[in-house]
Computed example of a mutant assay.
Amino acid sequence: MDKEKLLLSILSTILGSSVLNGVITHILYNNKLKKELKNKGNDMIAQDIANSLQFFRNLELELTTQEIYNIENELNERGSDINLFGGECIYPAIFNDWASYDSFIEKIHICREQHEKNLSCKIALNLVFIDRYTKQLSLFMSENGNEASLPFWGAIFIVDLQRWQKKIDKLLVKEINKYSYKLESHASNKWERLKKKELIKQYESTILHFLLTDKCPLRYKKMMTHLKTILESASEDN
């Protein structure tokens, strides 16, 4: 006879079967209650994470709303010959004016303040990236033109923003489609390990970084140099 059966036999003899059954029922009920409370807690955390992921996705999808650059002149000059399905110079609609751009930055601030803690390290670092990028870009644009020049800069920096938006959208959709979620600490070795790739290297590959530092990955050097030459030429013409 194993120890558990021996213990039950002794308890049954001492307490009587009715008392023992009550004790066992009480233990089983407590275990069930603890399990239910744990599952309920996990469900609440999962719902919080799901809400945060969806908020972030709604935010980044705003970058997919685009306008045709200099549309008024294009319509006046070309009329119905303009191609609205591709090939035209486009920019994200958040560059329509400072109010639109600042509104986007404010939503990033809200996302970081309310939802960053619920995001995985990789996704949270991409949120940090777009926060710093848009603020750095804001400084650049304010020093290189007035509000009327925002659509022009939007047409230039759409390359950076589209690259980031497509990447983060894939990450978010994959995470949203999971059936369970786990919180990750942002004060961890994983955060530090991913920071170099998701934050620093991603920024070093942007047009904005190149225009500010004249540095970029070798694979982008030719394209970046050509773009800078065009911008410098346009600046001289103006």
Rank of each mutant, 00 (worst) to 15 (best):
M1Y: 04
K3L: 10
K5G: 11
L6S: 06
L7Y: 15
L8H: 15
L11N: 03
L11I: 06
T13A: 12
L15A: 08
V19Y: 13
N21L: 14
G22C: 14
I24Y: 08
T25W: 10
N31E: 12
L33D: 12
E36C: 05
L37G: 08
L37C: 10
N42W: 01
I45G: 05
A46K: 00
Q47R: 11
N51R: 12
E60D: 13
E60V: 05
E62T: 11
L63V: 11
T64A: 09
T64K: 02
E67V: 04
I68M: 02
Y69C: 08
E74A: 08
L75D: 00
L75T: 03
N76Q: 15
D81P: 03
I82P: 03
L84M: 13
L84P: 02
F85S: 03
F85Y: 05
C89E: 12
P92Y: 01
I94H: 01
S100W: 14
S100T: 13
Y101S: 00
Y101T: 02
D102F: 02
S103F: 11
F104C: 03
R112E: 09
R112A: 14
E113G: 08
H115R: 09
K117V: 08
K122I: 14
I123Y: 00
F129M: 12
Y133H: 06
T134V: 05
F140P: 10
M141T: 09
M141P: 02
N144W: 04
G145L: 01
A148V: 04
A148R: 12
S149W: 13
S149Q: 14
L150A: 03
P151H: 03
W153V: 03
G154Y: 00
F157M: 06
F157E: 04
V159E: 12
D160T: 02
R163E: 15
Q165Y: 00
Q165T: 08
K167S: 13
L171D: 13
K174C: 08
N177W: 02
K178G: 03
K182G: 07
E184Q: 08
S185N: 01
K190H: 04
K197S: 15
E198Y: 05
L199D: 04
I200M: 13
Q202N: 08
Y203R: 13
Y203E: 05
E204Y: 06
T206K: 02
L208P: 00
L211Y: 01
L212E: 15
D214V: 10
R219L: 13
L227C: 09
K228Q: 14
T229Y: 04
L231A: 06
L231N: 04
E232F: 14
S235P: 07
D237S: 09
